[in-house]
Amino acid sequence: MGKVWVEYRTEKELQKIIDNDYLTMLSRLAVGIIFIWASIYKIIDPCSFSKSIWYYHMVPGDIINLMAIILPWVELISGVCLIVGVLYKGAVVAVNGMTIIFIIALSTAIFRGIDIDCGCFKAAQESSEAAWESLIFDFVLIAFTIQLALSRSTKWRLKR
């Protein structure tokens, strides 16, 4: 009985931390700015971004360009919605989904030995450090996006 009570209390305290208004706002700002910042160069230069997608050897050639045109805007709008607090739940789902896709793409690239810097195949252990750094960054990012998904804070949203 006592053990169950302790677990319940721990869970409640954890939920309290997750629901913290300041922590949630910090996550919104961090994730929002990262997504907006990441989208800008892709919107300006879709050609380079389409090459980057091609490098992963995961997407059929026919839809690479379409993806390169639309995906950066999803990033930008989701980032803005997160910070401003409009279409908030949709934006949270979007950033979580995109981060999971990025992690899968990077992991498979590393596993298959694709050097994402040049798009060429190398031995897996020689995959560029950039891929590992990006993967670690994405795992940190997903910690924030999961916090946003679990948080019940509605403070500082334009539309609740």
Partner: peptide, 25 residues
């Protein structure tokens, strides 16, 4: 909204790329 903006801006962008077809950006 993203699809509309992406396709619309791509139409008028100096760096526009074709939407479909084999990989040829």
């Amino acid at each position: 909204i993203s699809t509309g903006l992406g396709l619309g801006i791509n139409l008028i962008s100096p760096n526009r790329i074709v939407c479909f077809g084999k990989y040829r950006p």
